[in-house]
């Protein structure tokens, strides 16, 4: 039962990854007893399971995900939200206003076109558009901070193993970082300088997501930048 690559090798769609009694994991497919890659990414052999960690992909909604979206339409009984996915999401008015009456409430006063909101996916299957909720503390309209956008497949890398990367970022910069599973990230800091620093670090993580020893390099970069900032103040 041969395998044709080493762990963390970069593979292209159509590359033959393994032959024999293997299980096809994410971003792969099975043809007879052969497993091929279906996306560009890093191959991962884990016992009998062969999968590919994609380097670039789009966001596919999944129930329970925290997402950041933009209001694109205000309808009679809800809003249409762009969540950076192939399907636009719906937020129902009942979800926000408990005793909602279409004749009485003006929905554009609650969320207007162009507003950014933090929400959670509560329902989605491929036959219907995803439905969002904001009925949780912290969810709802975003009023301050900065939003950066990365490839959704790199969100797990940004969070790191058991949150190691994201916790390091928060600790080093003292900022509040909210990661949407759809690749949009909200950064709230004391000043614009820190926000710039965090977004720089996030872009670096996105760029170099497929390399090893990344956490250390990011720490180093942040510390250097901070020193520079202190020097500039003087």
């Amino acid at each position: 039962m041969p395998i044709f690559f080493e762990n963390r090798d970069i593979v292209a769609p159509g590359d033959l990854l393994a032959e024999g009694e293997y299980i096809a994991g994410s971003n792969t497919y099975k043809e007879g007893n052969r497993i091929y890659a279906s996306r560009l990414g890093l191959v991962d052999y884990e016992e009998k399971r062969v999968s590919v960690v994609a380097l670039n992909a789009f966001y596919v909604p999944s129930v329970g995900d925290l997402v950041i979206g933009k209001v694109t339409e205000v309808n009679i009984n809800g809003w249409v939200i762009d969540i950076n996915a192939p399907y636009s999401a719906l937020l129902r008015a009942f979800d926000v206003i408990p005793k909602f009456k279409p004749q009485k409430n003006d929905l554009s006063k609650v969320f207007d076109i162009g507003d950014m909101i933090l929400a959670r996916v509560i329902a989605y299957d491929r036959t219907r558009d995803p439905i969002l909720t904001v009925r949780e503390p912290e969810l709802g309209k975003i009023t301050r901070g900065q939003i950066v956008k990365i490839t959704p497949t790199k969100v797990p890398r940004l969070i790191g193993r058991r949150g190691s990367m994201i916790n390091m970022l928060k600790r080093e910069t003292g900022c509040k970082i909210t990661v949407g599973q759809n690749g949009l990230i909200l950064i709230e800091c004391k000043g614009p300088e820190e926000e710039r620093l965090v977004s720089m670090a996030i872009y670096k993580i996105e760029q170099e997501a497929h390399t090893s020893g990344l956490t250390d390099r990011v720490v180093e970069m942040i510390r250097k930048e901070k020193e520079r900032m202190i020097k500039n103040e003087k």
Binding site: A12, P13, G14, N27, S38, L40, A54, N56, F58
Partner: peptide, 11 residues
């Protein structure tokens, strides 16, 4: 298509 991250059988 591959660069856009669209799942494909082969190039």
């Amino acid at each position: 298509l591959a660069d856009a991250g669209i799942p494909m059988r082969d190039l």
